[in-house]
Structures are given as structure tokens and as C-alpha cells.
């Protein structure tokens, strides 16, 4: 009987090893990116194009920008695609990443209940819009997760001269873009969202875009290779190939081609 058990065990372990290695047969890289990019559906659209031309599988781990940078620092990803310019520059300056390159931008939108009690729709610029929400004390749901969107939001509060700390109407979700939108929808609150996630978000309920279009709301994405000098196991060649592709005309075309409905979500940045 012990013999039979042993046989069963080895075959079980082998079959899973086989399955796992089959899934990883070709070359692959780990791309740490943000939940907003992943949830917009962009990767599902552009990565198959890259995989087809290069034979390199890209495994996307979606996190907040801050977490994604941490994962890069620890050497657990090969390439980062994130959106927090200041943090990205710091990341490269400290020697964790190799050269940051512009990839694309989308824009943030201010989302809120259709009734728009704070009157954000009439705001003259982004700072004014944020100021109106604070003045009215309308509920606000913040990502609160050190993501790129969170960092941008804090910048906007700063430019509006609002100190959100300890405000009763200011709720920190500590979650990704989707859960934050779910919360805002449930509470009838305002929040800042990236256009990509918003466009593919299904549980909108009463939410609608109340303010958008200010150039200040542009949200640039950068790509960088995790420094192989610091983490020798980083797949340098494959990672560089991906970076070269996503910033090439082919990559730019793929990004532009991704649409939800008729809306283009990301705009490639030419160098």
C-alpha cells in the first residue's frame, strides 16, 4: 500500500511540474505594473501582439505604483511600467532601475454622483474642482494605497491648498482603482480615477465624469528595466526587447489601437 501511495505522489508532483513548466516553456519576463493599466484591459490587447512577434511571454503583476516600485527594488520583476514621475526618477537615481522611458499617457477624470452637489462641473481648473469638493465637504474616496493615482491626487489637493488629513468626508480605501470606484459608487462619493479603469468599469451606478480635460490631469506612464547590476537574474535581453518594442512605432500603434467603445484610452508619447 505504501508503494501505491508513493507512486501516486510522484506522479501527482510530476504532472504539476510538467504543467507549470509547460506554461513557462518559452522565455518570459515579469512586468510589474499598476492595477489601473491591467484593469483597463490594455495589456490583454497589446501583449499578445508583442508575444507573437518576439516569442517572449509577459507576465503582468498588477499592483499600486508604490508597491510595483518596491517589487522592482527587491528584484522580483524584470520590467516596470508605472505612473508616478517623481518616484520613477528617484527609483532610477538610486540605481534600482536602468533608464526611464516615456511610453504613453492617459488622463485622470474626476468622478462623482450625477447630482454633483459640490458643483464641480463648473470648475475653472483642477485645483478649483478639488477646492469645491473640500469646501462643500462632499464625500471623497481616496485610493490611499501609494499608487500613482494616489500620488497624483495628493498633488491636486496640495495645489488646491486643502489639508485632507483628519477630514470626516475624506475616506481612504487602501485599495486598487476598481474597489475604490466600487466604494465611491456605493457611497455616492467623488473620487479621482484614471480614464482607462473608468472606461472599463461596470458597476457605475450613479457615478459619472464631473470634471476632465485639464492638461494638469494628464497621467504619463514610464517604463524601465530593473537594474541587472543590482539583480543579476533580471532578464536583461528580453526586458530590453520589450522596452524597445513598446516605445517603437509598432508599440505605439498597438497602444493607440486599443479602444473601449469608440474611446481611445491611452496615447503614446513620442520621444
Amino acid at each position: 500500500m505504501a508503494n501505491g501511495v508513493l507512486k501516486f505522489l510522484t506522479s501527482a508532483v510530476f504532472s504539476v511540474t510538467a504543467m507549470v513548466s509547460a506554461a513557462q516553456a518559452g522565455e518570459s519576463i515579469v512586468l510589474a505594473s499598476t492595477t489601473s493599466t491591467e484593469q483597463s484591459g490594455l495589456f490583454n490587447f497589446i501583449l499578445p501582439i508583442f508575444e507573437k512577434s518576439s516569442g517572449i511571454a509577459v507576465k503582468v503583476v498588477a499592483l499600486g505604483t508604490g508597491q510595483a516600485l518596491d517589487v522592482g527594488k527587491r528584484g522580483d520583476a524584470d520590467v516596470l511600467l508605472v505612473h508616478d514621475r517623481a518616484a520613477e526618477d528617484k527609483f532610477v537615481a538610486e540605481g534600482y532601475g536602468v533608464e526611464r522611458k516615456d511610453v504613453m499617457y492617459n488622463d485622470f477624470v474626476l468622478v462623482g454622483p450625477a447630482a454633483d452637489a459640490a458643483g464641480v462641473k463648473g470648475a475653472k481648473d483642477t485645483a478649483d474642482a478639488f477646492g469645491r469638493i473640500a469646501k462643500k465637504g462632499s464625500n471623497w474616496v481616496s485610493r490611499g494605497d501609494r499608487s500613482g493615482t494616489h500620488a497624483a491626487e495628493l498633488r491636486f489637493w496640495g495645489s488646491a491648498g486643502v489639508d485632507v488629513k483628519g477630514q470626516g468626508w475624506y475616506k481612504e480605501a487602501g485599495a486598487g482603482m476598481g474597489p475604490t470606484l466600487n466604494m465611491a459608487a456605493g457611497m455616492g462619493a467623488y473620487t479621482l480615477a484614471d480614464r482607462g479603469t473608468w472606461a472599463s468599469f461596470k458597476n457605475r451606478q450613479d457615478l459619472t465624469i464631473v470634471y476632465a480635460g485639464d492638461p494638469k490631469l494628464y497621467n504619463p506612464y514610464g517604463v524601465m528595466l530593473v537594474n541587472p547590476a543590482r539583480h543579476p537574474h533580471v532578464k536583461k535581453a528580453a526586458g530590453e526587447k520589450f522596452i524597445a518594442w513598446i516605445t517603437s512605432p509598432d508599440g505605439r500603434r498597438a497602444i493607440s489601437a486599443y479602444k473601449i467603445g469608440n474611446e481611445q484610452l491611452f496615447y503614446p508619447l513620442s520621444r
Binding site: 506554461a23 513557462q24 492595477t35 484593469q39 495589456f43 490583454n44 511571454a57 507576465k59 503582468v60 485599495a175 486598487g176 482603482m177 476598481g178 474597489p179 470606484l181 466600487n182 459608487a185 479603469t197 472599463s200 468599469f201 461596470k202 458597476n203 457605475r204
Partner: peptide
């Protein structure tokens, strides 16, 4: 996707997509 996505993480993902 296609590598380490299991039922629970897929559920979490779809929930966060609304």
C-alpha cells in the same frame, strides 16, 4: 493571466473591475 490566476484571484479581479 494564464499563469497564476486562480478562481479566487479572478473573482477579486472581476470585483475590482466592477
Amino acid at each position: 493571466d494564464r499563469s497564476t490566476r486562480v478562481m479566487t484571484t479572478a473573482i477579486a479581479l472581476e470585483t475590482s473591475k466592477g
